[in-house]
């Protein structure tokens, strides 16, 4: 028997005759060792898988969080400065933006549309670039993987304060059919979700503040 084999499969042993030697593991010893090893290896593999999945999930969450924050920031900036609403629904709004340069001119400089594309599950902005309002209008994606989306509009009623919806004939309509002139505040709600194989879905729910259209009369 080779020495190396003793080292691996045997233990040093002294028999009854006093002769020292090397004897192999018993079957029970080997099974116990294999069992313990398997248990440990399973734990290690599971831990690494868990770490990997969690890392991917954390990455997905970070990307979602970053995208939604950036999208919301862009949306809120233009909503706040808007001075008119030319079209609106629960999934899109077209607003007029006054001259954003320094100076007192408040004429509408450009219009921009924010919309939810339910087919492609994206929240988009269509208008000239923010950094070049004289540039060509284009559609850019603000948030990907948008699972649910809605825009809420608020108008003012004396005694009731700001209420969800806008005046439409004899009712306060919440379906975007009312009068755009009555819109005072806008709120955005969306849920973005990413998924990867073997990884739990990362979901980011966004409920914005109510943005006041400060330049709108």
């Amino acid at each position: 028997m080779q020495k190396t084999a003793y080292l691996i499969f045997s233990t040093r042993h002294t028999d009854r005759t006093g002769h020292s030697g090397v004897r192999a593991f018993t079957l029970v010893e080997a099974m116990v060792a294999i069992g313990i090893s398997s248990f440990i290896l399973t734990g290690v593999v599971s831990a690494f898988l868990m770490i990997g999945r969690s890392s991917t999930n954390a990455y997905n969450y970070c990307v979602l969080d970053s995208n939604t924050r950036q999208g919301l920031e862009t949306f809120s900036r233009e909503i706040r400065i808007a001075n008119s609403v030319s079209a609106f629904s629960s999934t899109s709004i077209t607003i007029g933006i006054p001259d954003t340069s320094s100076g007192s001119s408040s004429a509408v400089a450009y219009s921009v549309t924010y919309a939810y594309d339910s087919g492609n599950k994206i929240f988009t902005r269509t208008g000239p670039p923010l950094t070049d309002i004289a540039g060509t209008s284009a559609t850019t994606t603000l948030v990907n993987n948008v699972k649910t989306f809605s825009l809420k509009y608020y108008s003012y009623l004396a005694g009731d304060g700001y209420v969800n919806g806008v005046q439409n004939d004899n009712t306060i309509a919440t379906d975007g059919t009312g009068s755009a002139t009555a819109i005072k505040q806008i709120e955005l709600t969306l849920t973005a979700q990413t998924s990867n194989v073997t990884v739990v879905n990362a979901t980011n729910a966004v409920l914005s503040a109510r943005f006041i259209l400060r330049n709108k009369s």
């Binding site: 900036r77 706040r80 006054p98 320094s102 007192s104 330049n215």
Partner: peptide
Amino acid sequence: SVSKWRELYTLSDRST
């Protein structure tokens, strides 16, 4: 009445 409201985002706007 306010005829124009504009948020100042950039450093150059704020430095004014």
